[in-house]
Design a protein around this nucleic acid. Structure first.
Lengths: 202, 202
DNA sequence: AGTTAATGCGAACATCCGTTCGCATTCAAT
DNA sequence: ATTGAATGCGAACGGATGTTCGCATTAACT
């Protein structure tokens, strides 16, 4: 990378490049995404691409950060509205806001989230997980009894992963047997029931 | 592919090649796995590889089938023992048998399952899912009340995905806060509670 | 032992990849 | 309008990849 972008045109370019990268990944997956294709979709040259990103990895890191930021932004946006609802409805609202994001822009975010196990992508899932843990923790504070809180880390882990991967899987190839809303409803049931019950075991 | 393997040495070779492919994927991921590396690990030449597999894709398909077969074999093996236990214990046994497989052979199966969203790999997850649905259905037959059974497809879908991806994620990078057994326990709680309760909603 | 078909090999080929670099263009400041 | 820096370009480079093909080796059968 030669320098930080100083002129307006180049700042817009960084944005175009990231957007183009996401489009490429959404179209043909991460493996088939090349610097040349990204440049082509962005309407620039490969050379310009390398002025703002040291290498392909750095490009992917930036794009992953974009995904994570987008998810977290949605989540944070709805958090203030949650105290007005019961647990199940809160979960439903939360999941719907993420699901809406995955539906946007021809599934650009969805395609990215699907590649979570690619090197350099895992950090994103961990950031999302951490934020969700925090939100659950806030809901729990002083309201639920000790036993529920004690098992919260494990239960949260399981539930967050369950929610994320069910959404990714369903949106990637929706089952004809139930709708998006039914899926989210089932997940909301799952999460709220499991948290409130405190999990049957000792 | 020139011909079907007729001699013993060549039949063993097909096996070596598949094993080598899995080792390569486990070591450096699917993206970094090349025909040359596979041949090297298998101790053969690239030319020989192409005698038994038309192209790289066919190799991957075969390897994915291997993974699916291995998982289903384990599952089918423990199914007859399930009626002796309650639902939660049944789920625990089932999950443990899959988890054991993922632990085997330096995580060869785990690495493969992580790449489920790669093209040509999704069929495997669907086969596993179908089998699990069948098992759950058998357990349900005549034993659970109508309302539980009616919601079974959706609830099963959610729970199976929750179980698979929680296992894959945990085994891929285990959390230091809880053990493998605790994770499986939590999943068993989740699945059994959710199925038996019939899900709180209408 | 000799013959033939099956099997194994690996250098060679075309293609594509990530990345670089010298040059052309544009911008901002004078 | 001139200048010097910032930005944009794309042909070119070295290396890796999937795949092929003619030849060497091995097994099976007479």
């Amino acid at each position: 990378m030669r320098k930080q972008p100083r002129q307006k045109r180049s700042q817009a370019m960084v944005d175009d490049i990231l957007e183009a990268t996401m489009i490429c990944i959404a179209r043909h997956g991460m493996e088939a995404t090349t610097t040349r294709k990204v440049a082509e979709v962005a309407g620039i040259s490969v050379g310009s691409l390398y002025q703002y990103f040291q290498d392909k990895d750095e490009l992917y890191e930036a794009v992953q950060e974009r995904l994570t930021d987008a998810v977290l932004e949605r989540v944070v946006q709805v958090v203030p509205t949650l105290p007005a609802h019961d647990l199940r409805e809160s979960v439903r609202i939360l999941l719907t806001s993420v699901a809406d994001l995955l539906d946007e822009k021809d599934g650009r975010y969805l395609a990215l989230l699907r590649e979570w196990n690619q090197v350099g992508m895992r950090a994103g899932v961990e950031r999302i997980e951490a934020k969700m843990m925090e939100i659950i923790g806030m809901q729990a504070a002083g309201r639920w009894d000790r036993d529920v809180v004690r098992r919260l880390p494990l239960v949260s882990y399981v539930l967050i992963n369950a929610a994320i991967f069910n959404l990714v899987r369903y949106f990637g190839s929706p089952s004809p047997y139930f709708s998006r809303e039914e899926l989210i409803g089932a997940l909301a049931d799952l999460v709220s029931a499991q948290i409130q019950s405190g999990a049957a075991r000792d």
